[in-house]
Amino acid sequence: MREIHVSKIVETTKKLCIDANYYLTDDMRERLEEAKEKENFSTAKNILNIIIENADIAKDEQRPMCQDTGMAVVFIEMGQDVHVVGGSLEEAIHEGVRQGYTQGYLRKSVVNDPIERINTQDNTPAVIYYNIVEGNDFSITVAPKGFGSENMSQLKMLKPADGIEGVKEFVLKAVKEAGPNPCPPIVVGIGIGGTFDKAAFLAKKALLRSTNERNKNSFYEGLEKELLGEINELGIGPQGFGGKTTALSVNIETYATHIAGLPVAVNINCHATRHVKAHI
């Protein structure tokens, strides 16, 4: 049995919250650079330049790329042979988020209750997902999620008869309705199958995947590419002012589903798509 002390979890979570908000991931930078080269519409090119310049400033000055440093979504992958010692695992994660957001000068954007709405002042609680796997590895992924894009996300329980065409239509409708609101160019996370909640989870999980990686199933890999092409033909463009770069990547995750259902969830992320992972 491998033992991991909660202090290590606090420390790691704290660092991940800060790093995710200060540093644009390499793959996102590559996508933005590629998009800039391809754009010949001047407004779109200018905006992509500004977005890249902004990421440079954030990195050089150690400040968040976006003021909406998000609600912290934390994914724990824990080997079944790991024993967490020294306190509560859940409290350690919240404490890491608390320290990261306070010491990293990140915005506190969480309210205690959806109706009462009192700011908790330390960005806790985080949204936490646990996945227990074989072995003794322990990893933490922090994905701060801004709500400009979160609010533009949609879920629909399609009929099996709607099939692949129904899925495509729904994804395009969600992106079109979102328009300029989620800070395009966006990353589109799509969850297909499972149950109502599983589809939403898969869509979120899809956003954790590097934009350099495609779905391993060739059918869904094809669908990712096809949807990216169709989304970029909508003409929404960077910030919604027109252009060929509406999305930088479409990431699909799927799961088995029920004979009567075809759940589809579309989780939209902005050009500051943030996620960092660390192994302990």
């Binding site: 790329m65 003021q67 000068y105 915005r107």
Partner: peptide, 18 residues
Amino acid sequence: GPAPSKEGQPIGSVGPTT
């Protein structure tokens, strides 16, 4: 709604909300 400012900065990161 800006991010908090570090010492010596007038303000933290501040972009538009929807």
